[in-house]
Amino acid sequence: MSGPAAELPPAPATPATPEVVDQVAIARLYGEPLFALPQDLYIPPDALEVFLEAFEGPLDLLLYLIRRQNFNILDIPMAEVTRQYLGYVEQVRARNLELAAEYLLMAAMLIEIKSRMLLPPKPAPDGGEAPDPRAELVRRLLEYERIKLAAQQLDALPQQGRDFWRAQVHIEQSLSPRWPDVCVDDLRAAWHDILRRARLVQRHTITREALSVRESMSGVLRALQGRRFVEFGELFDPARGVAVAVVTFIAVLELAKEHLIELTQAEAYAPIYVRLAYTPS
């Protein structure tokens, strides 16, 4: 058909939101699905970072790679472990160069161990078997794993502030305290305790009494003058104390030694008598 009537109808306008059936919307903007990022949208490089696995250091990462694939830690496949380790280090270095420095040091150590395993082993000085280049790395991994397991066990213990709270009870007290009454028995017991302690610390004052044996000798002679016999006990005065009695006894012995007095008795166990051994003029 020719002519103006044969012109085709105009094409329908393209909708603003494409009708996508087999694609999942990445976001929703004001309730409308968004299947592609806007061309003028600016997202800072560090706006969003997702860490699938967080490690506390190179040994933690290395132990994770070994345990995840069930490698024998005493016989580590260095080629496979080194490849996986370097892949993670590249991701870390792209985000944080300072953090990657510690991991790069371990990567250099893994490459060195791998190269030493490719070279012929050097014979030991004593003629024995050459040491395994992986021995030091295995020792560090086993020691780190023990410490990590111990830390997990400690973290599993109940902790104050995380798993439980300490109970606190506030007791209100009256402003004017009420003191208990004191009974007579308690007062008497307190007084007896004071007396007991006072006796423990009491002091004795010792005075020196001037006693003379010569004066006691003269007193004994005066007591015997004018008397024929005097009973031995009459020469002592118990009221004056033990010291005076001792000095008087010594005086009697001195007088008997100088033959100024005589000690006599009628028979055995009879009373003792004292008399002058001379007749005074």
Results as ranks from 00 to 15, higher is better:
F164R: 07
D185N: 06
A223P: 00
Q152R: 15
V184Q: 00
M217A: 03
A223N: 06
E209L: 02
T207N: 08
V201T: 15
H170R: 09
I147G: 05
D237E: 05
A210S: 13
G219H: 15
W191K: 01
Q160W: 03
V184C: 01
E172D: 13
A239T: 09
A210T: 14
E234T: 09
V242D: 14
R208A: 04
Q168C: 06
W179L: 04
L221W: 00
G241F: 08
R203G: 05
P158Y: 02
D163Q: 07
R208V: 04
V201C: 13
F232R: 00
R197Q: 11
E234L: 10
G241R: 01
P180A: 03
R162V: 15
L157Y: 02
D237P: 01
V201P: 03
W165N: 12
S218I: 11
R228S: 10
Q168S: 13
S216P: 01
V169E: 04
A210P: 08
L187S: 08
V230M: 02
H192P: 00
L157C: 02
V220S: 00
W179N: 02
L221I: 01
R162G: 04
E172V: 13
L200T: 14
E234S: 14
C183I: 12
E172W: 12
Q168D: 06
L187W: 05
H170Y: 05
I206H: 14
L175P: 00
H192C: 05
R227V: 01
R227S: 02
D181M: 06
E145T: 09
A167Q: 12
Q225S: 10
T205A: 09
L187K: 00
R162K: 14
L195S: 03
I206A: 14
A223D: 04
R214S: 11
Q160S: 09
E234H: 15
V242W: 12
A156L: 14
A156M: 13
A156Y: 15
E215A: 08
G161T: 04
R166D: 03
V201A: 14
S176Y: 08
D237K: 09
V169Y: 03
P177I: 06
K148P: 02
I147H: 10
V201R: 15
H192R: 09
L211Y: 08
A198P: 05
I194V: 14
L175I: 00
S176I: 10
I171M: 11
C183S: 11
R197D: 07
Q168G: 06
A198I: 13
A156T: 13
A239W: 07
H192N: 14
A198S: 13
Q168K: 14
P177V: 11
R208H: 11
D186H: 04
R228F: 02
E172A: 10
Q160D: 12
R197H: 06
L224N: 01
S176C: 12
L200Y: 07
A150L: 10
L154N: 04
S174V: 07
K148C: 05
G219F: 12
A243W: 03
D181E: 13
A198G: 11
F232A: 07
G226I: 04
I147P: 00
R240E: 04
D181Y: 07
R240A: 07
R208M: 03
F164W: 15
F164L: 15
H204Y: 12
Q202T: 07
Q159T: 11
W165L: 15
R208E: 03
F232I: 07
Q225R: 14
W179D: 02
P238D: 13
L149T: 10
P238M: 10
A167C: 05
H204T: 11
D163T: 05
L211T: 03
A190D: 13
D163F: 04
